[in-house]
């Protein structure tokens, strides 16, 4: 797995591209839709947060790719969860490190579990 972007220009050239290049991209939308359905935040909140993250990426001149889009979706979801639940940004950073350590300490072929 890598994070290499694919060009989105011209538009029609990406017409047959899979909606998800990697599983984590689908998981973001699944979590966002589930949390909207649960009422943690509204569809409007999600749209506004995603729109803002996309605008920020555009202002930073990030490439106009599906990879950038899902990066923005991840940023938007992390912000909304931090704003609307007890889970805060520091919890996410700590848990991300826990997962990295779990992967690094698990031999190849074995299931990875948090310690």
């Amino acid at each position: 797995m890598n994070d290499q972007p694919a060009s989105l220009k011209p538009l029609a050239s990406t017409d047959g591209m899979a909606a998800f290049e990697e599983p984590w991209q689908a998981e973001i939308l699944a979590m966002a839709d589930t949390l909207v359905q649960r009422g943690l935040f509204t569809a409007n909140c999600w749209s506004d947060a995603l729109g803002l993250a996309i605008k920020e990426a555009n202002d930073r001149n990030e490439p106009d790719t599906q990879y950038t889009y899902y990066q923005c979706a991840l940023i938007a979801l992390e912000r909304l969860v931090a704003a609307h639940s007890v889970i805060k940004s520091a919890d996410m950073t700590e848990r991300r490190m826990d997962w990295e350590n779990a992967y690094l300490s698990t031999p190849h072929g074995h299931p990875v579990h948090l310690k």
Binding site: L74, Y103, L104
Partner: peptide, 19 residues
């Protein structure tokens, strides 16, 4: 051989397990 996932995949895993 640890096959460390990408930075984005790790963040998504962190978020999902917390949720």
């Amino acid at each position: 051989h640890s096959h460390l996932p990408s930075e984005s995949a790790l963040r998504v895993k962190a978020l999902e397990t917390l949720l």
